[in-house]
Design a protein around this nucleic acid. Structure first.
Lengths: 182, 182
DNA sequence: ACCTGAACACCGTTCAAGT
DNA sequence: ACCTGAACACCGTTCAAGT
């Protein structure tokens, strides 16, 4: 990649990171380009779809996801508390940008989505936690791991779209936890 | 209301009903106006916001909602089957148009939303079912009825946005049902 | 090879002119 | 009182012209 191309690429990602944090994943790409000081065509050359841009934003996110799963698994306590903690962390991880829960949960099962790989990392992290509980026989066995992501993702989506605070999310997660444990 | 106004109003609602059924609640209002054979200004005069139009569409929906709750309460069987049936019906009721689950679930707690009243009917129907189970002591008491709507609405939202079929929704609802029952 | 910015299409929304 | 349709603003997307 040419030097000026690389510079523009970085500028765009940086501008997008800012704007998405302020306005969510649905912010105007035109404004991203403007902030980055490039023409709209340049943005499209590097990122043909909005999701390609989101994908770049999520680069550092994957480490956070893996770390969170590690921490969840290292938790000392009963299964119920472990799972509840993980789900709260899960919601937090996908709710960092407005519109995130919906986008991420949808991409999870969509092979066409540019952010699918990133979402698979999250799905994998979740699978590690779930499988651990499954081995202990603590979990009902008629629910696929992907469906667990969708369930928790659904709660996060509603919370995001209705601007609920974590206090209101908690009891919903508790219901899911109790429904999942045997 | 003048005769031609009334006629246009009806035409618009009819066109919207068609288009929303085909393309979901996010369909172009311009196309609605075109189909109805009116200028865009006329549409805006009658329905200043998209949700005012959705509100008109949902007029007949309220009866369906009430009927569904009646049927659910008349169900002969155990609490688990009753609640599961109701939730499946709930999902069906809000999933009739693409984008419906998200719009309806969000409007539920938003006093600014023009469709709030309609959504309250749904919330009320749900409350009747939930309260019945609560009286029997069959339900955990630390979850508000509105949160139950959000939980089920969240599942419906994910299903809608990921184009899941009912077969995939069922197990998620089962988790919620089991988590809610004592 | 990459960038720019004008141009296009589409959509929601407004409003002056008409009946 | 109501309707029309041109006009505007905004956004995503493309592409010919430039370096």
């Amino acid at each position: 990649m040419r030097a000026d191309a690389k510079r523009n690429y970085d500028r765009i990602v940086e501008a997008a990171r800012e704007l998405f944090r302020e306005q969510g994943y649905d912010a105007s790409l035109d404004e991203v380009a403007k902030r980055a000081g490039v023409g709209p065509g340049t943005l499209y050359r590097h990122f043909p779809k909005r999701e390609n841009l989101i994908d770049a934003i999520l680069q550092s996110w994957m480490d956070k996801v893996t770390d969170a799963a590690d921490k969840a698994l290292a938790f000392e306590g009963d299964d119920r508390a472990l799972l509840l903690n993980w789900f709260e962390e899960y919601v937090r991880l996908i709710s960092q940008h407005k519109g995130g829960p919906a986008k991420i949960t949808r991409a999870m099962g969509d092979p066409e989505s540019p952010i699918m790989t990133k979402c698979q990392v999250l799905a994998g992290a979740n699978a590690r936690v779930i499988d651990r509980l499954r081995e202990d026989g603590a979990l009902r066995d008629d629910v696929e791991t992907l469906q667990v992501c969708r369930l928790v993702g659904g709660i996060a989506t509603v919370a995001d779209q209705s601007d609920l605070d974590p206090t209101a999310v908690r009891p919903m997660l508790e219901v899911v936890v109790d429904g999942l444990l045997t």
